[in-house]
Amino acid sequence: MKFIKKIINFYFREYKVNLSGIFDILTNITFFFISIFIFIFSVGPEKETLSLLGVGILWTLLLLSSTLSLRKFYQDDFENGSLIVLHLNGFSFELISILKTISHFFFVQFPFMMSIPFASVLLDISLEKMYDLFLSFVIGSFILSCLGSISSSMNLLNKRNYLLGSVMVLVFSIPIIIFSVGLINIEDNFNSLINILIGLLLIIFAINPWASGACLKLAIQNN
């Protein structure tokens, strides 16, 4: 009971931190929408072209926008010593990475999902496709949060090159983009592709705590 209370209180802290950084989240969403407009201007306003490219564009932009928020994943808590204090209060590094990943999904990725209906209107994506897109976003963005956790914790060990983590996320997200976009555009294979996406999610969710936890531990030891 005490442990569950601690976890709930951890999310209260995360909520407060993210609320105070609400402008960062809004900036990310603004980046997302402005990028959509840039794509529309660059490929032209023809409905057929937008409808054909729309899902791919949305997914690419989600990926780029979410990498913007990765630097803050662990950095602040690492630099001010909060990670050590949390660890000394019963949160193992593995647990911290799980809780932080879920927090990133809800507080950073979720606002993007809320913007899908507006983005779909801009790119002429049909209502039917939008439901599939939403589903692929839910699974895919959680995978991105897990990848973000691993790359951000690795970044703590590499103080010289912050972009390396973002590059890693982009490389590992290629299969996610392939299956997520395929899920919407290839209607016959919906069930098999959604199963592959869920499988990828489970694999990366299982790897994340061990990989991130080990990197956090090493980073604190080396600090």
């Binding site: 802290r13 407060k16 931190v17 105070s20 950084g21 630099e79 001010n80 010593g81 909060s82 050590i84 204090v85 000394l88 209060n89 019963g90």
Partner: peptide
């Protein structure tokens, strides 16, 4: 051990924006 211990580092762990 951790249940009985408080650590104050040379940094501030309070959230500066709050």
């Amino acid at each position: 051990y951790y249940n009985n211990l408080t650590y104050i580092a040379d940094k501030t762990t309070s959230l500066r924006q709050l």
